[in-house]
Structures are given as structure tokens and as C-alpha cells.
Design a protein around this nucleic acid. Sequence first.
DNA 1: CACATTTGTGTTAACGTCAACACAGCATTG
DNA 2: CAATGCTGTGTTGACGTTAACACAAATGTG
Lengths: 298, 298
Amino acid sequence: MAALGYQPHAAAQNMRTNRSRIAGFLIPDLTNPVFSQVAKAAESVLAEIGYGLFIFSSDRSERREIDFIAMAAQGRMDGLIVSVSDEGNERVRRALSQVKIPMALWDRDLDLEADVVFSEHARAMRRITSHLIELGHRRIGLITAPTAIRPGRERVRGYREAMGAAGLGPDDNLIRCDMQTTEYGYQQALELLALTPRPTAILAGGNEILYGAVRAVRTLGLSIPDDLSLVGADDRLLSDLLDPAVTIIERDMREIGRTLGAMLARRLEGPSEAPPRHVTLTSEILMRDSIAAPASPV
Amino acid sequence: MAALGYQPHAAAQNMRTNRSRIAGFLIPDLTNPVFSQVAKAAESVLAEIGYGLFIFSSDRSERREIDFIAMAAQGRMDGLIVSVSDEGNERVRRALSQVKIPMALWDRDLDLEADVVFSEHARAMRRITSHLIELGHRRIGLITAPTAIRPGRERVRGYREAMGAAGLGPDDNLIRCDMQTTEYGYQQALELLALTPRPTAILAGGNEILYGAVRAVRTLGLSIPDDLSLVGADDRLLSDLLDPAVTIIERDMREIGRTLGAMLARRLEGPSEAPPRHVTLTSEILMRDSIAAPASPV
DNA sequence: CACATTTGTGTTAACGTCAACACAGCATTG
DNA sequence: CAATGCTGTGTTGACGTTAACACAAATGTG
């Protein structure tokens, strides 16, 4: 075999055994380090059991999501890790429900027979919001992902709970949750900082949004934390290298990826018909120098 | 067909047609935006001709690179885009030479029958080095990728040429090119800045290295550009958001990815036996405020 | 030594698809 | 109208692998 350089033909093996030894990972955007780090960790877990991981970036396009799910339905993959871009998309949900292979969902509420890994957003957001309130902040802006996905929903919920608990009536004008892009973060930070009275703190829920918010602060020439307290999320690199370093809500992306990979691996290895598992992984607050008491407390 | 929800069985199609409609992309590290951006662009080009792109991150492990190439050899992929982590690895080279499918190489010098996309590193490095010399710098440090891969080799070459042309004798102690990690950038920047006389400028060739160098500058409490001129490469985000913004050598990652994807697509579409193509894409220098004349020119 | 059990070797069929082919039905043409 | 060409439908075999099976050889047991 070795002498002749024989290589078994993968397609023939797949057809005969009805397994491809490939798992799929559907993510919104590969170039976002949040996703690529999780994907990489999941990949290495699956590699241990001889599985390849086909990582697919949908660019938040329904068409691309459905195309990828169709590939899975054609037997190209034995299992799927999924993070859809819109939980409300019924076509995508239906496509997923028709794929008869094990699935693991990441931080999405979908009514599917699948394992799920949740991140804890609300609690961290509640804690940091309460912390800002204790420092004296009253007008706190929030920019985060759409409520069409769980992270956005949970972050808004945590923020509202903390504000409500402090007797600070809900001011929907302080909440911006329509997109999770740098450009959106920039625009909404500019708008929030143009309000009167101007917010004394901004919570940037999401790494891309943080980048936009930082740029907006730069554009307006504001000083952190004197003019504005700033909190970010899910960024390891920039938040640390900025001056001052930015307080962030942080999760362990490698742990998330490993957990997703391990959950799927368990179902790929044996035909375990165990009921779906739900795991919630915590977020931590990394306190740094971008937050302080407001200059002139109301 | 639609009524019954019929899905053709991919493995059977693959076996019958001897094509998988999947291409592979071997990269060193998926979590580096340089690679994920190129991969994403290549993916979208290949998607247009109905091909999926299996992106595989080797973590610079020979074993993983060979494992992936073996998957290609088993007929799982119809084509391959490759960026190996070490051009000198003969086992990897041999494995690639035995895979009988079209290949496109990215920025690597390997003696293979394959299309190649080169980035222009030496010219940009020569120009920015000359620019620093004109500003009055004499001791200029360079930290970049190993010369075991073309980008490292070319950057060192461009730097040497500019230094030599200015009559500045080669000082190998100013050149650090062993790894391309944040930690290496940090350590080597610290070492360079501990030399006497201290370099007045540092060229950080590579995004990860730049992050480390920025951290070292922070650690030492140096001021940019007063105490040190700093030049980075391949980073869109951090270099712009730092204060002052960092001058960088920049390449269009999407163009690189699209070109790689298009080259491979051409060979996947028709059985074109055209001779291998070589394309060189330019790099640009984005002048920002991190470079200035040295405080006390020698 | 006869019988049961294990180990090893060789043969066969099936996985699902699609290209190739055969053939029937129909239209076109001289 | 016969000969020719075109369109559509139905049948068949092969892609490379592996599980299953049959059978032979070797080993173990009473």
C-alpha cells in the first residue's frame, strides 16, 4: 500500500459508510476574531477524533446560510455547529430542522433538537451597568447587536434590569441595537454623544461596535475616562493596547469552541440518543482604566 | 423531486463524477485577520462557480499540513490554495507535489507546478526604510517573519537594500526575524530598545509583531514619534485607532484572496493546461503620525 | 483424534449517481 | 411515403469501498 502510494478514495468511502468524517460550522463572519477563535478551538477538538471542520462564513446572508445547510443535507457533513445570523428567519430554521444530523447551536435560541452552548451576557451587563451607576453615572448609552439574536437580547435585558433596579426609568433613546458593525458603532456613538444631556458612559456590546465607538470618541476629541466612561466586549487586543486600556466584558472563546466541538464529537462518535444538553459559559469583567466617576454627577 | 424533498447524495455524485466541488485553503493561522480576510475573499469568488472552500488552519504544524494535503489527495478537494508555514519543509513540499489537482500558492517560493500570487514586500520596505533614513534615522530596527517564508525574506532584503544604499553598514543585531507572534514582537522590541545607542525607529513587519512592539513601547513608557518612530504592516484596525495612528505597509487582502480564488477557479472550470501564472500584487505605504525625525540625529 | 472455536483469506453485493446506450415516437424532408 | 433526423424515455453498468458471508486453515479442548 505504502509502496504504491495508495490513497483511499474519500467519496467511495463516504458512499459506502454513509459518513463523511467532516463537520460543518456555520458562522456569520469569519474575519471577526470572535468567530475565528471559536472555530479554531472547535476545529482542534474535532481533529482529535479524526474529523475535519468545514468552516463557512455566511456574511449574514440568508441565501448563503441555506446553501450551506443544503450541503449538510446532501450528506457532505456528519454534524453541524451553527450560529445563525437571525433567529427569526423561519426559512433557515426550517432548513436546519430538516437536516438529520447532530447539531450544536452557539448562543442562539432556536427550537431545534440540538445541543446548545450559551454565553452569559445579561449578568455581566447587569453588573457593569450597576457598577457605572454606583460611580454616579445616570445617563448610560448602550450599543449592541440586534435583539434578533440572543446576545443582543440578553445584553439589552441585563442593561435594563440594572437601570430599572436603580430606579432609572427606561430611556429607549439610549439603547441602540440594530447592527453589529464598526460603522454602526461609530454612527450610534456619535448620535448618543450628541444628545443633551450627553451620556456620561457608553457600553459597546460587541468588538466591532467598540472599534466604531473608539473612533467616534476620537472624532469628537473626547477624553476617556474624564469626558466619557467606555466599556467594550469580546476584544482582547485593541482594548488592551489603547491608552487608557478599555474595560471589557470578556468570554473565553477557546472554551466556547472546545465545548461546542466536544458536544458535537460526543454525538459523532457514538450514536448517543441522549437528550439535548444546554451549557452556559460565564463572562468576566476585565476592569481597566476607561471608566471613572462622571465629571459632574447629575 | 421538490415534493419529496429529494437531496442528491453528495458522496455518490462525487464518486460518479470524480469531482467534489470543494476547494481547500491551507493557512497557518485562521485567527489572524490577514489570513481570514484573504480566505473570505477567495471563498466568495469560488462560491460564484459553485465551489465550497474548506479553510484549514495548520497552526504551523507539519503534521497538520500533511494531514490536510492527504485529504486533498484522497479526492476530497478538486483544487488547493496553499500558504505553507515553512518553505524549507521538504516533506510538505513532496506531499504537495504528489497531489494531482490544480494549486495556487500564496506568497511562497516552492518549486511546484502551480499558479502563484506574490505580494510585493521588498519595494515597500525599501521605500519606508529610505524615508526614515531621509528623516535622519541611522539606527533602524527590523522585526519580521522568519526568512523561511518569502515575506520575511523579502522584507529583510528591502530593508538591507535601503540601508546599504545609504551607506549604513549591515548591523545584523538590528534585524530580528525568527517568529511572527505578538510575544516575539514584544520581546524583540524590548531587546532592540535596550541597545546602546538605542534605535530611533522600529519596523514591525507583520501585524502580530506590531501588537507586541506597541506593547513594548507602552511598557518602556516611550513616546511615539518623539522617542521612537514606529512602522507596522498588515493591520487595518489597531494602527488607525492608536494615538498617534501608526504608519503601515498595507496590502489589499481582499484583492489577494480574489486573485487566488480566480486563478484556481479558472483551472477548476475548464481543464486548462495553460502554463502556471505568477501575479505580483503591490503594497502601499499608509503615512500616518507615528514617524518623525529622530530627537537627536546622530 | 474428533470436534469446536478461532483466525485468516477470498468473493460478493451494495451504497446513489450519471453517462452511455437502446429504442420508441414524432417531426422533417425529398 | 420512405428515409432521415430529432426528442424523449427507460435501462444498464461502473465509479471504489467495505460489510457480510463462505470457506479453508490453524488452534484449542475433552
